[in-house]
Nucleic acid binder design. Structure first.
Length: 435
RNA sequence: GUGGCCGUAGCUCAGCCCGGUUAGAGCGCCAGGUUGUGGCCCUGGAGGUCGGGGGUUCAAGUCCCCUCGGUCACCCCA
């Protein structure tokens, strides 16, 4: 745009390039999540990014996510499709389509898309990790899912996360509750903000989420779900709370907690990072969605899931100084002063032997190549000049700490490296250190 | 969709209020100091249509208008 005579492309609004080392940090985060949930029997599912628009319409026809933030468009055959704004709907659609044995315990990671104005911690393309379980009606499962998220936050080092817990009751409870809230809000129309009135018209429960000071008094005097909760729903909720207490997962009851999507029933929860500003402190959430599979054309099936926002979790990590980006790590950097063939051959041999190895292309002075070696994060530099070639040797230099170096026969190089520092020769787990 | 703030070197920014010769700094990058040795230090160098367009003026990075982009917030949400 800034050069009319030359086309210069930029990433689209709200879309970002994730460059190293941030990319490595994200991968490390997903690895931690995968380790936590796979240890509990969850297996990865990878639904497509694009679905029939109807899949998403079913999950929230009165929500902003669906009504105004969806990337939907007409496909080449005229059908209406959309980029997924979240993953639960696609996962449940996959469940209905494939009828896997229940319980179906899956986890996922990936990008979602919402067409909204970007700001800190919210982008048009954003990543989530999450789990879903279909086919189990047992409060202990709710406890398991919540406890896994809790364990994950602990594993990456976050300490300021608070669990907010609520129940929306059974289907009929929710309907009754919605009416009770609607009646209450209608009775106080005059005290509500214009935005709250607009929300009231299409989804009364969502007004409870209003953070506007003007609405606070009306919201706080609104009926709570406990007033209309049926006995089975109350029992379910009691057992969830009991389970969390036994497992030592602290929670705060949040009777006004109403989550963004329409499909939630019974248990709902949200994780708030208190190290972040309120505008983006929700770092995860989820709940039960018994009935969603049926809405998508499948058999009546209980379901529960959670989704955690990767971008916001990393913001919280920044705020708390944990889970920093990893340092560059490399076993060997080859410095070649004899034309490049030695670097070509040695890096190839070293990699085949299981070492990570890099080099400089295009030559350069020894000094500049050593600078590159330093920046690469390499443990060792292997130097090859005329002297070494003549002697059939290479120079092995320690780049950490001192400047020890020694000549070794070229055909003994991998053996020398293996003996010198075994721990450096293993493909290790991501090295993630606090910044 | 609405509002605030900001666009000057690869990055972070100064200069703009009070228009005036070749637009600066730090970091990064390249090279040299050390004709085969990184990190620290010193010296030098490359790198900028001052987001774009229009206007005012003898003169615009600086003033005015428009526009594009970024960012933060509202709405809503992860």
């Amino acid at each position: 745009m800034s050069r009319p005579d030359r086309t210069e492309f930029r990433s689209l609004t709200g879309m970002r390039d994730v460059l190293w080392p941030e990319s490595a940090r994200r991968r490390a985060l997903v690895d931690v999540f995968a380790a936590v949930v796979e240890a509990a029997g969850y297996r990865e599912v990878r639904p497509p990014l694009l679905e029939d628009l109807g899949v998403f319409l079913r999950v929230g026809e009165t929500t902003d996510v669906v009504t105004k933030e969806m990337y939907d468009f007409e496909d080449k055959d005229g059908s209406r499709v959309a980029l997924r704004p979240e993953l639960t709907a696609g996962v449940v659609r996959a469940f209905v389509q494939h009828s896997p044995p229940v319980p179906w315990k899956v986890w996922y990671e990936g990008a979602n898309f919402r067409h909204e104005r970007p700001q800190k911690g919210r982008y048009r393309s954003f990543e989530q990790v999450g789990v879903e379980v279909l086919g189990v009606d047992d409060p202990d499962l709710d406890v398991e899912v919540i406890a896994l998220a809790w364990r994950f936050y602990e594993a990456i080092g976050l300490r300021s996360v608070r669990l907010l817990l609520n129940t929306l009751g059974e289907h009929d409870d929710r309907a009754r509750y919605t009416e009770a809230v609607r009646d209450h809000l209608e009775a106080h129309r005059g005290d509500l903000s214009d935005q709250a009135l607009a929300t009231l018209a299409r989804n009364p429960l969502r007004v409870l989420d209003s953070k506007r000071p003007q609405d606070r008094a009306v919201v706080e005097s609104a009926p709570v779900i406990a007033d209309v909760l049926s006995a089975p729903a109350a029992e379910h909720f009691a057992r969830v709370r009991e389970g969390l207490e036994v497992l030592g997962v602290p929670y705060t009851e949040a009777p006004r907690l109403v989550r963004g999507l329409d499909y939630y029933r019974r248990t709902t929860f949200e994780f708030a990072a208190e190290s972040l500003d309120a505008a983006q402190n929700a770092v995860g959430g989820g709940g039960r969605y018994d009935g969603l599979a049926e809405d998508l054309g499948g058999p009546p099936t209980d379901g529960i899931g959670l989704a955690l926002g990767v971008d916001r979790i990393l913001l919280a990590c920044d705020a708390e100084g944990v889970f920093g980006a990893p340092e560059a790590v490399l076993d060997v950097y080859v410095v070649d002063l004899v034309g490049g063939a030695a670097a070509r051959d040695l890096t190839h041999e070293l990699r085949a032997a299981g070492f990570s190895a890099d080099r400089r292309f295009g030559g350069g002075s020894m000094k500049s190549q050593m600078k590159s070696a330093d920046r690469s994060g390499a443990r060792w530099a292997v130097l090859v000049g005329d002297d070494e070639v003549a002697a059939g040797e290479v120079t092995l230099r320690d780049l950490r700490g001192g400047a020890d170096q020694r000549r070794v026969p070229r055909d003994r190089l991998t053996a020398e490296l293996a003996g010198s520092q075994p721990s450096e020769t293993q493909p290790s787990e991501p090295e993630v250190e606090p910044t």
